[in-house]
């Protein structure tokens, strides 16, 4: 069993318009010192997954099922008080927008001190020293002075560093970062990604990074999970997903991205249509209305949900096409077009 082991996780929200299956049967694992990248577009259920692990999903009406094992402890069946005591200590989270995610009325130091003192019975002075120390470790210059600044007095990059300092203050073993660099400038994004990589090595924590940006995933991840319509459609090592992808949606994502590291093509290869709304996921394979190969599998595409099946060595794909068919398409049709880029 992995350090974090999620089995058949379902998070459903009953609404007036019907049942929203934000996460619908997700399984994955992350080891200490390893990074899992969860990739998906808006409405794929990637953020709800992370909130669900921490027990932060909104609304008392949400229906959670499945198992979440953290270091040998099951969390879905655990009491809310117990999950709370783990939050911030054993598992912590970094959010997308550091400005709105920090309280505007408290100094950065006060917020870190608070996070530390929830789980550590220490005096304010000790906690303050720790906060200064943490700010220094995430690369904030003059931490002893900046500890008394308010979030709005920080620049975007500094704020995200402070958020990271806050999340790491209790030395968590699982860190979840939800779009940690989306709100940042590109040069600052690079700094933050470097910082996260270095800190992970230092703290040896399990890291889950959630993003829509394949570039960010490639920078950090050991394993990658591609989500679509609340389900995992492809799951494997970073090499599997980038060099031997087998799901048409993954191909589509790769073809949609203009890339700096290759010669530009005449045209991008977009996926037709838009991501589905979670309230109305297409029947059968959720991707079939946008899939250029849906006709190959006939009625099955619209009537039967394909199983997430292993193709080779822990590489999982959810597709009706046969393994040979998918590999053939990738080698002969998709890869040559992408490679000329």
């Amino acid at each position: 069993m992995s350090f974090l082991d999620v089995k058949d996780l379902k998070i459903h929200f009953p609404t007036d318009d019907g049942l929203v299956k934000s996460v619908d049967g997700l399984s994955f694992g992350v080891e200490r010192g390893k990074t899992l990248g969860i990739v998906g577009e808006s409405g794929s259920g990637k953020s709800v997954t992370s909130l669900g692990i921490l027990g932060l999903h909104k609304g008392g009406r949400a229906r959670l099922s499945g198992e979440i094992w953290l270091d040998g402890e099951e969390l879905i069946g655990a009491s809310t008080e117990h999950v709370r005591s783990l939050r911030g200590k054993k598992m912590a989270m970094i959010f997308q927008d550091p400005l709105s995610s920090m309280h505007p009325y408290y100094t950065v130091g006060q917020q870190i001190i608070e996070a530390y003192r929830i789980h550590n019975d220490v005096s304010k002075q000790v906690a303050r020293k720790h906060a200064v120390d943490m700010l220094g470790r995430v690369g904030i210059p003059e931490p002893a002075r900046r500890v008394d600044s308010y979030p709005h007095e920080f620049s975007g990059g500094m704020r995200q560093r402070a958020m990271i300092a806050m999340a790491l203050s209790c030395d968590p073993e699982l860190l979840i970062a939800d779009e940690p660099t989306t709100a940042l400038d590109v040069t600052v994004q690079a700094q933050i990604l470097d910082l996260m990589r270095d800190l992970q090595r230092e703290f040896n924590s399990a890291l889950i990074i959630i993003t829509h940006d394949l570039g960010v995933v490639a920078e950090l991840s050991d394993d990658i999970l591609v989500m679509y319509g609340g389900k995992c459609v492809e799951y494997g090592s970073a090499e599997d997903v980038f060099y031997r992808p087998e799901h048409p949606y993954t191909w589509g994502l790769l073809g949609s991205m203009p890339r700096l590291d290759r010669e530009p093509t005449e045209r991008l290869l977009p996926i037709k249509g838009s991501p589905p709304s979670l309230i109305n996921v297409p029947p059968g394979c959720a991707f079939h209305p946008r899939c250029p190969y849906a006709e190959r599998t006939g009625d099955k595409a619209t009537t039967e949900v394909p199983a997430l099946a292993e193709t080779e060595g822990g590489h999982l794909v959810r597709c009706h096409m046969s393994r040979e068919e998918r590999r053939g398409l990738w080698e002969n049709e998709i890869k040559p077009v992408l490679e000329t880029q």
Binding site: V186, A190, G215, A218, S221, A238, D261
Partner: peptide
């Protein structure tokens, strides 16, 4: 140099400039 490249190999052997 700062733009992340969607290629897991590149991250290891890329010469980076960090501002």
């Amino acid at each position: 140099s700062a733009v992340p490249v969607p290629d897991p190999k590149v991250r290891k052997d890329r010469d980076r400039i960090r501002l």
